[in-house]
């Protein structure tokens, strides 16, 4: 039998005392097949970063974590430090949000990529690793890679830095790449280039990608599957098309409406009103209820579980009753051809 690349189940992450502390991630589960792209979308504070950091045991020291996360069948949660260290940066690569702070300011880009290579293979000489680093920079389309190698992070532009970060993350040919808001710190024009690079690299090299973002637009053309996260849970999950065209959750709907429309930029964006609940004061029942247009009394009493619907899986008590989104209008919005 073949295990999926990544299978997460019942992942929980909490802070504070075990009894009456707060939970930031509350039972998250998904699977990712090799070479596929999963987009995890949700507002800031919904628990996306924690979820991914838990896989590499890179959670802040005081966090409590339980549940299961199997990488090629091997359990990551609770794996010995000495063992998981060999997966980090080797089989699982990471790209972070702010490439300026993510690089060490006092070391050259070349040294940092060389370190990534040699941490996992001491037999490679520094010189050979430097050569490899140069090829990697070329692969992520950084001009004059031989000179760039000798420069410090602050000498790179934001976009180039993120390219270098991606080069470093794929240095050891990982099977899984975790990209946590890789374009959030960048200019809009550069964002598209970085996404393009990620898409090409992962496709060419058969790398599975978990792409974390607060912007549904980012995963629109990229993800095979999308999970929408709110208040520490997945509130809706499905294929990209299912999410965009058959969403059965008011929160997802809000995110879609908040996307900038390429062909109608003059239209005001409809942001979801209100702010997400703090993990320390989550309302009972559906965590989205205080902001939900469709909320009813029962929503404030009973917490909805993720359940299978015709298209997506949704955690909304009223999933079936929601009036349909104007799918045709949306098709125009995203420029997608709906005439099958």
């Amino acid at each position: 039998m073949s295990d999926p690349l990544l299978a997460v189940d019942g992942l929980r992450i909490g802070f504070g005392p075990a009894k009456d502390g707060a939970e930031a991630v509350r039972g998250v589960g998904f699977t990712l097949e090799a070479g596929k792209v999963l987009g995890i979308v949700g507002e800031s504070g919904s628990g996306k970063s924690l979820t991914m950091m838990a896989l590499l045991q890179l959670l802040p020291g005081q966090a409590r974590c339980s549940g299961s996360a199997r990488f090629r069948g091997k359990e990551l949660i609770g794996m010995r430090k000495s063992e998981i260290r060999h997966l980090r940066g080797k089989d699982i690569g990471c790209v972070f949000q702010d490439p300026l702070s993510a690089f060490n300011p006092v070391k050259t880009i070349g040294d940092q990529i060389v370190e990534a290579i040699r941490l996992h293979d001491r037999r490679i000489s520094r010189r050979a690793a430097m050569k490899e680093a140069e090829e990697l920079l070329a692969a992520v389309s950084i001009p004059q890679p031989d000179q760039r190698l000798r420069q410090y992070p602050h000498e790179f532009s934001g976009g180039m830095r993120q390219r270098a970060m991606i080069a470093m993350a794929i240095a050891n040919k990982p099977a899984l790449l975790i990209a946590d808001e890789p374009t959030t710190a960048l200019d809009v024009t550069v964002q598209a280039q970085i996404l393009d690079l990620l898409r090409t690299l992962t496709r060419e090299r058969g790398i599975g990608l978990v792409l974390i973002t607060h912007d549904l637009g980012v995963v629109a053309g990229m993800a095979d599957n999308i999970a929408v996260m709110y208040g520490g849970r997945f509130v809706e999950a499905g294929t990209a098309d299912e999410i965009f065209y058959h969403t059965r959750h008011p929160y997802t709907r809000g995110l879609i409406e908040a996307m900038p429309k390429l062909d109608r930029p003059e239209e005001r964006l409809v942001a979801i009103e209100g702010t997400p609940p703090s993990i320390w004061s989550r309302p009972p029942g559906c965590s989205f209820a205080p902001r939900c247009y469709f909320a009813q009394e029962r929503c404030r009493q009973q917490e909805p579980e993720l359940r299978d619907l015709e298209h997506t899986r949704s955690a909304c008590l009223r999933a079936e009753e929601l009036p349909p989104r104007e799918t045709v209008a949306h098709a125009q919005d995203t420029g997608k051809d709906m005439t099958l």
Partner: peptide, 20 residues
């Protein structure tokens, strides 16, 4: 963040401490 990056690269804590 750069210390987290080093850990994510697979650097043992000793290397994170001394090199980064």
């Amino acid at each position: 963040d750069y210390a987290r990056t080093a850990r994510a690269k697979g650097a043992p804590e000793r290397v994170v401490l001394l090199n980064h």
